[in-house]
Design a protein around this nucleic acid. Structure first.
Lengths: 351, 351
DNA sequence: TTCTGCTAGTAAAAGGTTTTACTAGCTTAT
DNA sequence: ATAAGCTAGTAAAACCTTTTACTAGCAGAA
C-alpha cells in the first residue's frame, strides 16, 4: 500500500558501490575517466533498479527545459482546425526528433491578460515559442520584438509561423501569399475570366493583404481592377465564405469567378452557390488557397494554391531551435507556393 | 551583452531584508504567521524585481508537474483531424482552468518502442495521461491497467477518452456507440428503408463493434439482418468511405441507405455516390456519426448522430484530475448520444 | 629521492523552491 | 518568580541532478 519513492541517482550510487558523481558521469557518456569495470557495474545497477533521471532536476541544473510552446489563436475550439492541425503536427514531429516536447497554449484574453506568454519563459516552462495565426492586433508580440542594440536580459526565442508583421523586427517563417494571389488570378485570367471577385480572410491578418495585392497585380497587368463591390470578407470560415459568396453574386451577377483566401471559405462559397442553383464551375469558377486535405474531397474537387503548410511548421521549428541554441540571431524566411489544378475552375460561361 | 541571470527567491530575500523562508511563506499564502509590514515589504520587492518562481524547482520539491499529456494515435498528420482536434481543444480548455499545462504526444512506433509512455511518468514529465483513438492493438496500455489487489509503486493516472477495451481494467470516459448505431438504424427504418448497409471504421477499435451491434439490434427487431455483403471497412477516412460506398453498391444495387461509422466516411461515401451519378438522398440515404462541424456544410448537409465529443474531452480531463489527486480510484463512464437530422437521409426511392 | 603527470574516482557546490523544526522575545497564568 | 504559550521569524533539510575542483595512488622522469 505504501507509495514507494521513485529511485534516484543516489540509490544507484549506493547499490553499485560508487559515488553519485560516477553514476552521473557514466550516464552522460563523459565516462572516458571511468574504468570499464565500474561503468558496467553502474549500468547494470541502473538497469536493475530501473533508474530514470528526473527531468525536473536536470532542467533545474541545466536551466533548459527542452519544451517548446505552440501558441494558437482563440478560435471556435482552436485545435479542431485543419490548417492549424497540420502545422501543429509538423512542429510536433520535428520537435520530437530533436529531443523536445511540445506544449499547447491558446492565446486568449485570459492567457494574455495574465501575461502567460512571458511566464512561459520566466517560470521556466519552455525554451521557445512558436506563434500560429498571428494578427496585427496581437500586441503581446511586441514583448518578443528583437532589439539588436542590446541583448535582452534572458533571450526569449520566438518565431511567427506562416505569417509576419511588416514594420516590426519579428522572427518569421512563411510562404509567399502575394505570389499565391497572383498565381490564382493569372490562372483564372488564362481561362478567360474577366469578372473576378475575392473573398478574403480576416483583415487583421497580414497575409490577407499580400494575397489581395497579388491578385490586384495580376489584374492590373490584364488592364483590370478589383472594385470594392467585388470584395467581401469571409473571416476564414465556411460560414463566412458562404455568406460572402451570396453577397457578391447578389450585388453583381456578372461575376464568373471567385478567389477565396483559404479553402474553407472556398468550400463555404461553393456550398452557397450550389444552394442558389448555380453550377460550379460551369456558372461560377472557384479557386481556394492552402490545399488542405479536404480540398480533394469536396464536390467539385477544389482547384487551389498549394501552400506548403507542413513544411512551414517543420522549418519554423527547426529555425526556432537554432535561435535557442544561439546559432542564429534572427530568422526571416519566405517560401514559394504552387498551383494545384482540380475541377472547381473552368472557362467562364458564355452568355 | 552579458546574459543576466533570472531573479530567484534568494534575491527577493536579500533585497527585502528577510529570510528566504519568509518570502516563500508570503507567496504561498501560508502567511498567517507573518506580520503585515513584512508581507508588504516582501510583496513590493517581488513586484520590483519581477520575481517569478521557477516551476522546475517547484516541481522538484512538490514531486508534481502540473502537466498532462495527450496521447494521440499515429495518423496522417495526426493533429489535422477534426475529431481529435475537438477533444484536444476540450482537454486543453479544462486543464488550463484547473492550472495544468498540456503536452502533445503521438503514440507511434518510435514513441512506444522507447517506452516513452512510461518515461512520461517516471522522468517526471507529467502527472497524468489522456489516451485518444485507442485500439485493441495498443498493447502499451496494459502498462496502465489497474491492479486493485496491490497499489502500484507510484500510481500512473491514465484515462482512455471516448473508447474502452472490454475485459480490461482501464479507466475510461466514452459515449454510447451501441446506442448511436441503434438510433441511426431505427431512424432509417422509420423512413421506410429495408436495404441498409454499413461502412464501419477500423475493426481494431472497440466502438466500431458497439456501433455495429447497435445497428444489428435495430435490424433484428425489424426482422432484418446485416449480411456480410452489406458491410465494408472505411478505415475512418474520406477515401475509405468513398471506396467502401463504391464496393457496396457494385455488389448490391438494391441498397437504399448507408450508415457510416463517422462523418468523414459518410462524406467520402456521398462524394463517391454523386460521382457515380446517384443522388443523395433521393437514390441513396446516408447517415454519419459524430456530428463534426463540417457535417453541416457538405452537400447535402449530413444527417448524423451527435456524439458529445467536446464534453467527453472535458469530462475525461476532469476525472483524470480526480485520479491524480487521489479523489477516486477508478473511472468508467458512458454518456448518451442524440440524433441530428439534416438532409442526407429521406424515404427510400420507389422502384 | 623527489617532482610531474596521469588514472580513476569522489566531495561539494550549485541550481530554486517548500517545509520542518527550531528560536528569540514577549505575554499570560499560577 | 517561573513555567507555559504565543508571535514572528529563520536555519537547514529535502527534492535530484550536473559539474567543478579536488585527491589518492601510482608510473615515469630527472
Amino acid at each position: 500500500m505504501a507509495k514507494r519513492k521513485a529511485v534516484s541517482i543516489k540509490d544507484v550510487a549506493r547499490e553499485s558501490g560508487s559515488s553519485l558523481t560516477t553514476v552521473s558521469l557514466v550516464l552522460n557518456k563523459r565516462d572516458r575517466r571511468i574504468s570499464e569495470a565500474t561503468r558496467d557495474r553502474v549500468l547494470q545497477t541502473v538497469q536493475r533498479l530501473g533508474y530514470r533521471p528526473s527531468r525536473l532536476a536536470q532542467g533545474l541544473q541545466s536551466q533548459r527545459t527542452y519544451f517548446l510552446a505552440i501558441l494558437v489563436p482563440q478560435l471556435r475550439h482552436a485545435f479542431a482546425d485543419a490548417y492549424f492541425g497540420e502545422i501543429i503536427s509538423a512542429i510536433h514531429d520535428h520537435a520530437r526528433s530533436a529531443g523536445y516536447k511540445v506544449l499547447l497554449e491558446v492565446a486568449d484574453e485570459d492567457f494574455l491578460g495574465t501575461r502567460q506568454h512571458l511566464e512561459l519563459f520566466d517560470r521556466h516552462f519552455v525554451d521557445g515559442i512558436l506563434c500560429l495565426g498571428v494578427t496585427n492586433r496581437d500586441d503581446y508580440l511586441s514583448d518578443f520584438e528583437r532589439h539588436d542594440t542590446e541583448q535582452a536580459a534572458r533571450p526569449r526565442p520566438v518565431i511567427i509561423v506562416n505569417n509576419y508583421l511588416p514594420g516590426h523586427r519579428f522572427n518569421f517563417v512563411r510562404c509567399d501569399y502575394h505570389e499565391a494571389g497572383r498565381m490564382a488570378c493569372e490562372y483564372l485570367l488564362e481561362l478567360g475570366h474577366r469578372a473576378i471577385a475575392l473573398i478574403h480572410g480576416a483583415a487583421e491578418v497580414q497575409t490577407t493583404h499580400d494575397f489581395r495585392a497579388g491578385i490586384e497585380e495580376a489584374l492590373a497587368r490584364a488592364g483590370l481592377k478589383l472594385t470594392p463591390q467585388r470584395i467581401e470578407d469571409g473571416f476564414y470560415t465556411e460560414e463566412g465564405g458562404a455568406e460572402a459568396a451570396a453577397k457578391l453574386l447578389k450585388r453583381d451577377r456578372a461575376i464568373t469567378a471567385i478567389i477565396a483566401g483559404n479553402d474553407k471559405m472556398a468550400i463555404g462559397a461553393i456550398s452557397n452557390l450550389k444552394e442558389s442553383g448555380l453550377r460550379v464551375p460551369a456558372d461560377v469558377s472557384v479557386v481556394g488557397c492552402d490545399d488542405m486535405h479536404q480540398a480533394a474531397f469536396c464536390d467539385p474537387p477544389l482547384t487551389t494554391i498549394h501552400t506548403p503548410i507542413y513544411e512551414m511548421g517543420e522549418r519554423a521549428c527547426d529555425r526556432l531551435l537554432d535561435l535557442i541554441e544561439g546559432k542564429v540571431a534572427s530568422v526571416e524566411e519566405t517560401h514559394p507556393v504552387t498551383m494545384c489544378v482540380r475541377k472547381s475552375a473552368s472557362a467562364p460561361r458564355t452568355e
